[in-house]
Amino acid sequence: MITGLDHVVVLVGDIAAGEAAYQTLFARQPSWRNSGDGAERVLFTLDNMTLELMAPSGEGAPADRIRTVLAAQGEGLASLCFRTGDIAKMHRRLDRLTLKPEPVSEVESHDLISGATLSWKRTRAATDATRGVRLFFLERSKERPLSVRTAPASITAMDHVVVSTGDPERAAALYGARLGLDMALDRSHPDWGRLMFFRCGDLVVEVTHRPRKPGDKPTDTAQDRLRGICWRVADIDATRARLAADGVDVSEVRTGRKPGTRVMTVRSGTCGVPTLLVQPSAGRE
């Protein structure tokens, strides 16, 4: 019923600064700009999903809610939105699974760049039923325009988004049994804990559980959190050189955990989102 990850939302305090940061990271132009309902939004659409930057704008309850979240948590990942081909059917399933979905609403967005309009239908599961992670679901028939590349060695697509959990069994039940994502990997290691991969279209929702060590503070096992994003690149050495030349703080390239992959960490210019870049193995489509 879920066909893919439509987009992720990153909250920022300054929409212009966030746009500049991700234009540098992606080497792509924004594909959509929109303002309304207490927020300014800038979207970057890659080959398999969209990243939406959102900042508070003006006065009123919607803007105040965003400011409250920013004051409490700072900039960073705020929500995931899954795509479905039948929102009414998705809503019934969420209701049966006691995820307490909101009524389906129709949304329209006007692009400040081109003047184009997109519309979709969406619902949202109750956050207390999704272990603290804000999950939306939408149906739309028209694709967003792709973000135009502005330089070589651009980001091509999302590889995976990371959810950190204190209760891996309940998290596995949520993303696997209840939402219906395909569990492609379930692996445990005494050093780095448990790692689960759930396929979602052309990317993965990665759920991680880190074992507690002596001296660690107790964690809330009922609350998961969005932890970070890994983006795909075609040539990681060229991407590293481009980002370093643009003043972005990046690590050295290293061998990834998955055989045949090479990865690096982006330490700045991500608006509070822990960020990894990966060059997939040569055999990957």
Results as ranks from 00 to 15, higher is better:
residue 103 P to C: 02
residue 5 L to M: 08
residue 5 L to C: 02
residue 33 R to N: 00
residue 211 P to C: 08
residue 270 T to I: 00
residue 141 S to A: 15
residue 265 T to G: 02
residue 161 V to N: 08
residue 108 E to T: 15
residue 62 P to T: 04
residue 138 L to P: 00
residue 43 L to P: 00
residue 152 P to E: 10
residue 193 G to C: 01
residue 100 K to M: 13
residue 189 H to P: 08
residue 42 V to R: 05
residue 102 E to T: 15
residue 269 G to I: 05
residue 151 A to Y: 01
residue 136 F to T: 10
residue 181 L to T: 07
residue 85 G to D: 15
residue 95 D to P: 09
residue 199 R to W: 09
residue 229 I to M: 15
residue 125 A to T: 02
residue 270 T to A: 06
residue 17 A to R: 13
residue 52 E to N: 10
residue 122 R to H: 09
residue 6 D to F: 05
residue 268 S to V: 01
residue 53 L to H: 00
residue 103 P to W: 01
residue 59 E to F: 12
residue 248 V to H: 01
residue 91 H to I: 09
residue 108 E to A: 13
residue 211 P to M: 04
residue 118 L to W: 13
residue 30 P to D: 00
residue 79 S to A: 15
residue 285 E to A: 11
residue 209 H to R: 09
residue 25 L to F: 06
residue 265 T to H: 11
residue 114 S to G: 09
residue 20 A to Y: 05
residue 56 P to G: 10
residue 148 V to K: 15
residue 275 T to F: 10
residue 177 A to V: 11
residue 23 Q to D: 04
residue 121 K to E: 13
residue 133 V to G: 02
residue 61 A to K: 14
residue 76 G to W: 01
residue 281 S to A: 15
residue 91 H to A: 10
residue 152 P to S: 10
residue 280 P to Q: 06
residue 265 T to D: 12
residue 17 A to M: 03
residue 178 R to E: 14
residue 17 A to C: 06
residue 38 G to L: 08
residue 34 N to L: 12
residue 127 T to F: 12
residue 96 R to N: 12
residue 198 F to R: 05
residue 62 P to D: 07
residue 227 R to I: 11
residue 107 V to H: 13
residue 36 G to K: 09
residue 183 M to E: 15
residue 192 W to K: 11
residue 257 R to H: 13
residue 193 G to I: 01
residue 28 R to F: 03
residue 101 P to E: 00
residue 194 R to W: 00
residue 46 L to W: 07
residue 88 A to G: 15
residue 152 P to W: 07
residue 134 R to Y: 12
residue 12 V to F: 08
residue 80 L to N: 06
residue 26 F to V: 07
residue 242 R to S: 07
residue 125 A to I: 02
residue 157 A to G: 10
residue 237 D to E: 15
residue 129 A to P: 09
residue 180 G to K: 03
residue 72 A to S: 11
residue 46 L to D: 01
residue 262 R to Q: 01
residue 265 T to S: 13
residue 175 Y to G: 04
residue 55 A to I: 05
residue 71 A to W: 07
residue 169 E to Q: 14
residue 214 P to G: 07
residue 151 A to K: 09
residue 74 G to R: 00
residue 47 D to I: 03
residue 225 R to K: 13
residue 83 R to K: 14
residue 32 W to P: 04
residue 63 A to K: 05
residue 262 R to N: 03
residue 88 A to Y: 12
residue 20 A to V: 00
residue 145 P to H: 06
residue 62 P to M: 03
residue 157 A to T: 06
residue 53 L to G: 02
residue 36 G to Y: 06
residue 236 I to W: 00
residue 145 P to M: 10
residue 217 K to T: 06
residue 141 S to L: 13
residue 165 T to W: 08
residue 89 K to N: 14
residue 167 D to P: 08
residue 133 V to E: 02
residue 218 P to H: 00
residue 253 V to C: 02
residue 136 F to P: 01
residue 171 A to T: 08
residue 279 Q to H: 00
residue 36 G to R: 09
residue 240 R to S: 03
residue 169 E to W: 14
residue 5 L to R: 04
residue 94 L to P: 02
residue 213 K to S: 14
residue 9 V to P: 02
residue 280 P to H: 04
residue 199 R to E: 13
residue 248 V to K: 03
residue 282 A to H: 10
residue 269 G to W: 06
residue 272 G to N: 01
residue 273 V to W: 05
residue 171 A to D: 08
residue 267 R to Q: 12
residue 93 R to M: 13
residue 137 F to L: 07
residue 282 A to F: 09
residue 181 L to K: 07
residue 261 T to C: 02
